[in-house]
Amino acid sequence: MDLAAEVTRRARRVPVWVIYVLGLAPMGWLFWLGLTGGLGPEPIKALEHRYGLIALQLLVAGLAITPLCRIARVNLMRFRRAVGLLAFAYVTAHLLVWLLLDLRSLSLIWQDLVKRPYVTIGMAGFACLVPLALTSNDRSVRALGPRWRRLHRLTYVAVPLGAVHFVMLVKGWQWEPLAYLAAILGLLALRLRLVRSAFQQA
């Protein structure tokens, strides 16, 4: 029995809107928990971190879809846009919690942006994602043509920036952020090799 084909066949039956609904549910649920004491005594930081972590997980998932298809023959390509947009939604929520609940002061925000490299890097990652989210619709794909693919290679910059942001903000060298960074670099390396082998075949 071909597991990859089986997964692909089953996944084909899942409508994309289901991914959006399932993906957005934790955002509301976590906010509710924060409001009602379910995130512990410091809910602002907890919410900020949880949104950020989910964003990173979705970015990793999004990065995994193409290699999964090409190497493992598990085709989840039809969910790629949803996963990417969900990641963007969580990055945005993460940023909003930081701006509106955590800092709440333009001068603090500005100081952090210019003085704290991990904030600068995180913000640069977000800035990379904005044009990608804006051009994620079918019309933009058609209008941009081959330029769309080139533009969306910004993902390869944005996602590692997110992981570096995570590595830098924790105290000391912790394994969890390093594991995310390693996974992301691994997924990017797969593309390099893919590109190379594709050239060899040509």
Partner: peptide, 22 residues
């Protein structure tokens, strides 16, 4: 005197909920 990665000028009292100000 700031920590190199964040400001020490303000703090947040734990226990103030989701809308606690610094």
């Amino acid at each position: 005197v700031d920590h190199p990665r964040w400001s020490q000028a303000t703090e947040r009292r734990v226990g103030g909920g989701l809308f606690a100000a610094r």
